[in-house]
Design a protein around this nucleic acid. Structure first.
Lengths: 218, 218
DNA sequence: ACCTGAACACCGTTCAAGT
DNA sequence: ACCTGAACACCGTTCAAGT
């Protein structure tokens, strides 16, 4: 009585698992971007209804966090530099590079922090490098938050789809600032918009590290 | 022929203007929160259709940026501390306090930076304080970005509606980290979760300022 | 326990047609 | 130029009913 079509039409619908859902989510993200990574679209990909996903994923924010942790597997923790500070900067730059590919995910990550295996490994590595630099443990612990936050926030800033127009607005506003009403802004016009993104990121990491090293906890 | 109702039923619908739209948006934000500040809800408030707003506001991101700039009028730029660094920290804390009231807006602000009058005044003030501390102008210019980004990102981190549960996840993950696989994480367990939010914010500002002062631009 | 279809309660944005 | 209603193309999440 069972028709062959019902058994063999497609390559056997796999059972839903949390891991399978996250894998499918990463696939959708890579293929179509974060905007298309919705519960409904993801359910479609898994040949089910959106409601079924809620057994394994609390909500969209949790999905984003899980997907991000998965992507953090690509961060290069084993850099070849000699000094601890240089290796620290390299790991952070690698982390930032992963997030720069999915700025919208970085934006989510600020709110729904990942707490998966890859994230923990990253934090452990950063703490290890700071310990190697003899940074007191309490400063290192608070400092790691600061370092990861900067990388994440900088990536999130690029989540805009029309970045040229937005930048134009800021650029114009700075350019048109009168020395009478905004003396310091007018004086620092050139410096405010100077530097390549990589230069500014590198400078920021070094400034953060210097600050962490030199600022004792209360 | 004209019925009285059509003229006098409500207190005369005011003409749409950009300023009026932003004012209404701030009112909706204060009364119902960012989640309810949608183009449709805002249009309802102004007794018109959502489509009408698009003459004055490019999109939702631009609306958020304009609303934030409006709120930045509340930032206290004129603090009574003696040293430039203390005043700088106080202004940043005041900025953070405004954003902490609307974490979702802070999240938007990372992507769609405001470029209105209040934002420019804030940047000008921060640059002035750094100049007072004899921080070289190029370091100050890049540093202001760093300082504002940290305050904004820290506020954005609280945009979660279920913060207890999310925090539990991180807390549990850190607590359960094995010393074998995550030695530095295990060693820094206590320090990672220590400190009141205000203490950490204050420490972060001081670390950032120290880093900015001590790190020359490339 | 897991899975589902359908429903609830919304969104942003565009566009042709009006004034 | 501005304003509008209606339409397009979606969302996240819940829930009763099934297995």
């Amino acid at each position: 009585m069972t028709s062959p079509r019902s058994r063999r039409e497609r390559p056997a619908k796999p059972a839903l698992t949390r891991a399978g859902i996250i894998d499918a989510a990463v696939a959708v993200l890579r293929a179509e971007g974060l905007a298309k990574l919705t519960m409904r679209r993801l359910a479609q990909e898994l040949d089910t209804g959106a409601a079924s996903l809620y057994v394994y994923v609390r909500n969209t924010a949790a999905l984003h966090a899980a997907v991000l942790d998965e992507l953090l597997g690509e961060v290069d923790l084993d850099t070849k530099n000699t000094g601890w500070a240089e290796r620290l900067e390299a790991v952070l730059t690698s982390y930032a590079a992963v997030l720069f590919r999915y700025p919208g995910l970085a934006q989510s990550a600020l709110v729904a922090r990942p707490s998966g295996e890859n994230y923990l490994r990253l934090v452990d590595t950063l703490l290890g490098l700071l310990a190697e630099g003899d940074v007191p443990r309490d400063q290192a612990a608070w400092g790691v938050d600061l370092l990861l936050q900067h990388a994440t926030a900088t990536a999130a800033e690029h989540a805009d789809e029309r970045p040229d127009e937005e930048w134009q607005a800021v650029f114009t506003a700075v350019r048109d600032a009168s020395p009478d009403t905004h003396p310091h802004l007018a004086a620092a016009r050139a410096e405010l918009v100077s530097g390549a993104p990589e230069e500014r990121l590198s400078w920021a990491f070094r400034a953060l590290i210097a600050g962490i090293v030199h600022t004792p906890n209360p």
